[in-house]
Design a protein around this nucleic acid. Sequence first.
DNA 1: GTTAGCACTCACAGTAGATGAGTGCTAACA
DNA 2: TGTTAGCACTCATCTACTGTGAGTGCTAAC
Lengths: 344, 344
Amino acid sequence: MNLDDRKIKILNAIIKDYISTGEPVGSRTISKKYELGVSSATIRNEMSDLEEWGFIIQPHTSAGRIPSDKGYRLYVDQLMKIETINESSIKMIEYLLKQKIDQIDLLMKEVAKLLSLITNYTSMVSTPQIQKTRLKHLQLIPLDDKSVVLIIVTDANLVTDNVIKMDVKADQETLNKLSAMLNESLKGLNIEQINLPLIQELKIKMGVYGEIVNPILDAIDKTIKTSSTPDIYLSGSMNILNFPEFSDIEKAKQLFYTLEEKDLLVSILSKHNSNGIKITIGCENEIDEIKNCSLITASYTIGGRSVGTIGIIGPTRMQYEKVVSLLSYMSNNMDKLLNKILDG
Amino acid sequence: MNLDDRKIKILNAIIKDYISTGEPVGSRTISKKYELGVSSATIRNEMSDLEEWGFIIQPHTSAGRIPSDKGYRLYVDQLMKIETINESSIKMIEYLLKQKIDQIDLLMKEVAKLLSLITNYTSMVSTPQIQKTRLKHLQLIPLDDKSVVLIIVTDANLVTDNVIKMDVKADQETLNKLSAMLNESLKGLNIEQINLPLIQELKIKMGVYGEIVNPILDAIDKTIKTSSTPDIYLSGSMNILNFPEFSDIEKAKQLFYTLEEKDLLVSILSKHNSNGIKITIGCENEIDEIKNCSLITASYTIGGRSVGTIGIIGPTRMQYEKVVSLLSYMSNNMDKLLNKILDG
DNA sequence: GTTAGCACTCACAGTAGATGAGTGCTAACA
DNA sequence: TGTTAGCACTCATCTACTGTGAGTGCTAAC
């Protein structure tokens, strides 16, 4: 297998053409549209090699070639030139930056909307994972005879509340003391560090308060566990129907049902825990239902810590350059957007 | 126009048959399947009248008849017999009742899922509207130099939090005093009663605290405004693709895009503010994009007050009886489900 | 008022042929 | 040895045509 310069050029041409037209690319198209200085017959010979090596596929005898997942992978890794994001996208993002949004989930929805609007693909945005941030403040508020509200604020200014049911009554003063003690023990800790062993340790340490402390500590544990599952916002699922690769409704339906499984999406997105952009093409995806899709994800940060993920899912025939440039621009700006909400 | 007994029976037969098969119903089908004791020719004559009066429609010359919106309306108002909900649905709901779900939004998602699963239509569930409940407790917690967390708890035990940015520093003690004063003034008030005029009044009344009170009061106003917009959870949007009336992808796409407009759905659902079941058939819908759909909604209550809506949207050819019985059963049980979360 | 009979309509499925894009192979050329 | 022109071949797609059957409306007889 000798991928010489001409073969690379031909493969590049095939992929570029197929991405933009969606039609299988024939040898004549290449020899006419792309100036390689050779005839279609020569290109046919080269294409035959490229097919043998698995970079392109022929859907049927009398059709042109389309790129395989392996072809796209080569393209993405070596051939693709990252574009700078286009002007109109920047304007749309700046517009979002200027808007007065003061709730994280609303912002996330808007981000998802914008991503799908710009790309015409389906976008996914996961909300900031509280577990990646540090405990800043914890407060217990008496609600009524049998319940207490637990408020947890983290250093990213993320706030969660949780109603705790108790068998005994706890007055304001006790709760204040307790809050102070808990703050002292837990303040500054990474949320994911506040786990069961630590809770057990605290239970023993605070044994004096027994009855009151235990349910509260349990509640803290539970709150952290449940609120640490990020939400996912999808937008533009329906864009899928615009792509010929999903003109078979059954395929589209299958994908839709998969996209409705938010838990699954969470697990897919949370696989992206590095910085930068991650591209997963077709069969590289672990989930069967999206093996004919490509997924591009980017993580975003709050105060330098990566806390969430934004992503685009679409057919493997995707405008990789554009999506990559958009996602990296957007992920860089998420920090700004979030801080506007969190720091006011 | 004289809708005699036989015509009613024929109309009933057409609608029942069409709902179950989805195929236009011919005169012969009726004379064979439904024992009316008359020949197909007679039925044809009657059908001709029914069509003239607008209860049924002939898609094309050589096809049977299908019910019109007017036909469905008559059916729903007068002919339909409300079924009792079937055993398996009850079991599924009871299963949900037994599950340990301790967050309202998770519960709402599960309810939506269940509704779409049982009906095979698309379900919509709006979260409890906090504005319909009463203020129970309000608390201000210092966060850092410039920010304070505002916690509002209502009598349905719904909790919201909001970070308030301030120019001046407020210490715990001042905030406690303030919380107490605000509690005194606002406790027991219906959340929607806490509006701008009242806030203005309070500002004047509490003039002494000036600098600190004003941003807090503004924040209360804002919090109430933003958190009073209910969320909507959809489930089974994709079920739409199973219905022949949406086999034209363009139509399905249009509907999908409409269903993605959560604000629109909120406004549609919030139109249902009475008790009981509300059925809106085809053209009766105000939004153009769902004029070929039927919408069935039911409100649910917390502590006797109607605070939210559950609904099913599907083709006008809908199994009205089943959906109505399911929604009324479910809406009656929402109270239980919610109280399990809210009261522990 | 009801019914049998009949001509008529029209969507739909199936078939056949034409079209054209694209290929692989071969032989000739530089 | 690499490149190219030429040609036969394949196969999806489109169009036109036809037959079929479900269903109707109308008429005349009961």
